[in-house]
Simulated scan of single mutants.
Amino acid sequence: MNILMLMLSDNPDTGGMEKHARELSSELARLGHTVTLAAASQHLSDLEPAVKTRALDTGGSRNSPFLLLTVLRLIRANGFDVIHAQGTKAAFVLQRLTPFTRSLMRVATIHGFKSRYPKAAAFHQLIAVSQALATDIAQPGVTVIYNGVSVIPQAPALLPKETERPVWLAVGRLVSVKGFDFLIRTFQYCPGTLLIAGDGPERQRLADLISSTHQSETVKLLGFRSDVPALMAAADGVVISSEREGFSYVCAEALLLGKPVISTDVPIANEILPEKHIFRGEDPKRFAAYLSQDTSTLVAEQAEAQAFAADQLSLSSMASQTLNVYQRAIANLVSIH
Results as ranks from 00 to 15, higher is better:
F180I: 04
G179T: 04
L158T: 14
L133M: 11
F100L: 13
T109N: 11
G141D: 10
L159I: 03
A157K: 09
M105F: 03
A155R: 14
A128L: 03
R173N: 13
R173D: 10
V167P: 09
A108Y: 00
M105I: 03
F180L: 07
S130P: 01
D181N: 00
M105E: 05
D136K: 08
L104E: 06
S130L: 04
K161E: 14
P156S: 03
R173V: 03
I145V: 11
V167R: 15
S103A: 12
P153C: 07
H124V: 08
F100W: 14
H124K: 09
S130Q: 03
L169T: 04
E162V: 15
I110L: 15
P118E: 03
V167Q: 08
T98W: 09
V151F: 10
S115N: 06
F113T: 09
K161T: 14
S150L: 05
A121S: 13
S150H: 08
P118T: 06
Y117E: 08
A157I: 02
G141H: 02
E162N: 13
Y117D: 06
L159F: 06
L126W: 12
V177C: 04
Y117N: 04
S103F: 10
P160Q: 00
L169H: 05
V144Y: 12
Q131P: 00
F100Y: 12
R102Q: 13
F123Y: 10
Y117R: 02
P153S: 13
D181P: 04
S176N: 13
S176Y: 14
L133Y: 01
Q154H: 10
M105S: 04
V151C: 09
T163V: 14
Y146N: 14
L169M: 02
G148M: 10
F180S: 13
L174G: 07
P153W: 10
D136R: 15
T143S: 11
G141F: 10
Q154V: 08
V144L: 10
G148K: 09
V151G: 08
K114H: 11
H111P: 05
K161H: 11
A108C: 15
G179S: 12
A122F: 05
G141C: 10
H124D: 15
E162A: 15
Q125T: 13
T163C: 13
I145T: 07
L133R: 09
L159S: 11
Q139D: 11
P140D: 08
W168Y: 14
G172M: 02
Q125L: 06
P153F: 10
A121M: 03
S150A: 15
T101D: 05
E164K: 15
A170F: 06
P166I: 09
V171M: 12
E164S: 15
R106Q: 11
P160S: 00
M105N: 00
K114N: 06
T101H: 00
A120G: 03
T101Y: 05
Q125V: 03
S103W: 12
V107R: 04
